[in-house]
């Protein structure tokens, strides 16, 4: 350790996880494009949400491939994430994950060790949620539905959402405003309560 830290180093300290933290948990925030994933992560995160890329052709980066760099199937996907210190010794990471079927590698990486998934739904675009539900179920992730109401004038009953998405009776459905910290926290609470029930 530097015994005489510069001011730059002191300022940098704030990016680190507190030294007492011994455990990290992960919850996925999933949903189709523009459903509010980044917004929800931003309203809960204690750090400026970060963004990074995942290569979609991870296992096949060989010299021959470099000649084919214009190949449209070789893509990167950006994922964003935030962090929340939840107790002296535990941090929670929230990872925003797009729902497209072709991002399998990313999903495997995301799902590994995840507690569960909060599945954001725009009730005006319910059909775009089906592929996301397929993916979540394929990876065996427990999930809760958070209906992000963009248009407060339009009302969708829980029963309508349940029926349209063909949900199991015990899958939680909550309404949230992804821009609001408390509302976003309440959606996560519904998910974690559900996870506790399933773990019992």
């Amino acid at each position: 350790m530097d015994s005489n830290p510069s001011s730059a180093e002191t300022a940098q300290k704030s990016i680190y996880v507190s030294s007492e933290v011994t455990n990290a948990a992960k919850i996925l925030v999933v949903g189709h494009f523009a459903v509010g994933k980044t917004t929800l992560i931003g309203s809960l995160s204690e750090i400026t949400p970060l963004r990074t890329e995942e290569k979609m052709t991870q296992a096949s980066v060989h010299v021959d491939d470099l000649r084919g760099v214009t190949d449209k199937t070789t893509t990167t996907v950006a994922l964003d994430f935030g962090r929340l210190t939840l107790s002296d010794d535990l941090v929670l990471y929230l990872f925003g994950t797009p729902g497209q079927q072709r991002f399998m590698q990313l999903w495997e990486d995301m799902a590994r060790g995840a507690l569960g998934a909060l599945l954001l739904v725009d009730p005006a675009r319910l059909e775009e949620t089906f592929p996301v539900i397929d993916l979540v179920e394929r990876y065996g992730l427990e999930y809760a539905i958070a209906v992000n109401c963009f248009d407060p004038a339009a009302t969708y009953s829980e029963a309508e959402v349940r029926e349209a998405l063909d949900l199991l009776p015990d899958t939680p459905v909550v309404y949230c405003d992804a821009r609001d910290q408390q509302s976003s926290a309440m959606a996560l609470i519904a998910l974690v309560r559900h996870l506790l029930e399933r773990a019992a």
């Binding site: 948990a25 929340l84 939840l86 107790s87 929670l92 996560l188 609470i189 506790l196 773990a199």
Partner: peptide
């Protein structure tokens, strides 16, 4: 892991 889930729940509840 129940213990972790309970900690996560308590932490989230303290936010609201």
């Amino acid at each position: 892991d129940r213990a972790t889930l309970e900690k996560v729940l308590n932490g989230l509840q303290s936010l609201i």
